[in-house]
Design a protein around this nucleic acid. Structure first.
Lengths: 213, 213, 213, 213
DNA sequence: AATGAATGAGTCTTCATTCAT
DNA sequence: GATGAATGAAGACTCATTCAT
């Protein structure tokens, strides 16, 4: 005999599962076709659901799109914030964050494709606020790197250059390597590129007087 | 009295002029709205032409889009190839190329916006070959940098790292700085960032034993 | 201890109560939004029930719509038939019926709004029979007035004009006054208009030779 | 040889013709199905045009709907205003206006069906302003009758009753007769009913002391 | 050559209805 | 009985593309 409570819990579990399936299908299709060419029809089919069901979980196409990104971005940010909270010198943290970032992109290339297409995927006026939300969240990642760099500069480990731009450069390197990896059909391990990126950035940005390892 | 020759030439001139106006309007509108949200109606209006006229010069919307990019890319590539043909050490050429690249992006931010949106602007199957064309041309820029780096490595000026990836990293830095510049509403001179990018890249990539300036 | 009988009765009572709540909610929402813009979702919410429950009592949306009207129409017809059964001259009965009609509309403006929208709320082919039902019932009201007028003519109290059309005219006056009352935001007492309607109709329709009051 | 001017004029003429065909198709289909059940697809088919063409002439479905009504209403109002401008006693004008009104409805029953369904055809919030426009125009007809009645009262030809409500009653009679005529499948001449309506209204509303004709 | 009116395929979104629980 | 999650049919609207003038 199944209690009423249990029934409700099962339903809820199924729903969460369903929402997740939609998000996954969304990630896949949006990555493959971009926002405009992806159709809810196709996403629903991929999630093995009816079109209308998507609207039980999301306001509209744009909301689904943003939710797909936000979900992944939250996971990445959580991982990164964990590293930042650890003890240790900021430079080491930056290295670790870069490593995590690349590993995450390697495992979530669909997400990366969507994220990278974000600025190009112009939205209709009414959908802008949604995009805004994601762009802010994305920017917060840059802010974390920037803070670590500022600390590194304070500790005389990093050259006193514009910390914002140094962060921009580091992230740019990571993204560019990811694009290259994807355009090579992921024939090598992206996270291994971490050493290369770090070599260039660290040798380039460290304060020359700082004790070289 | 106007000769037959002259009439033909004038016509041709007008047509070229017309085509150029469409390309310029396309650059503007595509940059503002992205591929899918830009309408031929609006582009035609901006070019002060009728919608149908666009089809006298371009196959379709995608062709116009790609042509807008190609035209600019050709200009950039021409400038860069000039530098490459000059005498001098490859490292210096790389520096110059980077400088030219940033200056070009500063003066053509519309173009950059479109270029950056390219991976996201997926096309329908039949239009893929068009996009291919641009991606190849864009890649040829990367190839130039790569060759210069290979030479630098041969001359023991640059560390014997993967030249392709070093090129990727350098271009990634440039793009990332450009994105940052645009997201700051272009409040500073982008070409000044050239020094920063070069500082990081060069300090990071030069062979330590190489004579430091 | 509750008897089996009692349990059944309670259930039935609850059901009737439920059905009535749906009818009331329907009256409210249909009046506010019209047939097409009213949603079963909203009606269910207003009746504090689940959407599916409506289908335990009604065939479909159209059936509910028609039932809402029929229920009210039955109440009105019952009241009117009572008056008709009374002793007295037909002309006096007509006056009373008109009075009751206006008072009823005053107290049931939701219903009136729905009724008046009926001709405009065209149904899909398969739902026509439902609408037929209501239209017939509505017509039966007209028939009652007509019969009274016929009698009045026979008794030489009313001019020997087309009794059907006289009935149509009288009902038209009543409806028109009601529309006016609603469009004035019900700022006055509608049933007071009864005197005016009667004055015009009676003075206009009475046989001149008939003893003037 | 056809001049450029001529080409333009022909085009314009064709367009006006086209717009009119859409309006006529709209009148027909809206009358048959009501606002919500009428589809642009069907209207376009009936006008022998493609769906998209409707949008070259009207903003959207609601705009077409309102335009259908407005067009007819303008014609009716024009006719009525002509009568009002004539010389003569107000009572006679009212009689004439009523006659014109009935004749117009007889010849435009589609229009009448739409007009009568108007209050029931609730619109979405954004479409309300459109409906507003029509309701006002429709009300202006009532205003004209009201003014004539006021004059009649001043001239001691009509009883000093509420002129607004007298107008409401007269219009209600006319509408009700029209509904009856339609529900009888238009088997008789509606404009003949004019005499009946006038008989009732005039005998009912005239000041008893006024010289009886 | 140049135009822009006409087209109709394509897609988001809503909501009555069903049915497993 | 009662629920409300899931469905999918239906329709307004947009816009690239065509073609008569």
């Amino acid at each position: 005999m199944i209690s009423n409570e249990e029934v409700k819990e099962r339903r809820k579990a199924r729903q969460i599962n369903q929402k997740d399936r939609i998000l996954q299908a969304g990630e896949k299709i949006f990555a493959r076709k971009g926002f405009h060419l992806a159709t809810l029809e196709e996403i629903a089919r991929d999630a093995d659901l009816a079109k209308g069901t998507i609207y039980l979980h999301f306001l509209n196409k744009a909301d689904l799109f943003v939710s797909v990104i936000e979900k992944k971005l939250n996971i990445l940010l959580k991982k990164i914030k964990e590293v930042v909270r650890e003890e240790g010198p900021p430079v080491e943290k930056i290295r670790k964050v870069t490593e995590i970032h690349l590993r995450f992109l390697e495992q979530n290339k669909n997400f990366f494709k969507i994220l990278h297409s974000l600025p190009g995927e112009h939205k209709r006026e009414m959908e802008k606020e949604l995009t805004e939300r994601v762009i802010k969240k994305n920017a917060s990642y840059l802010g974390i790197i920037q803070k670590l760099i500022e600390e590194g500069i304070k500790r005389k480990e990093i050259k006193p250059l514009n910390p914002r731009k140094l962060a921009v450069i580091l992230v740019g390197m990571v993204h560019s390597l990811t694009i290259n990896w994807i355009s090579c059909n992921e024939k090598y391990s992206l996270s291994e590129d971490h050493n290369l990126a770090w070599e260039i950035f660290w040798k380039g940005a460290r304060l020359d007087s700082f004790n070289k390892r």
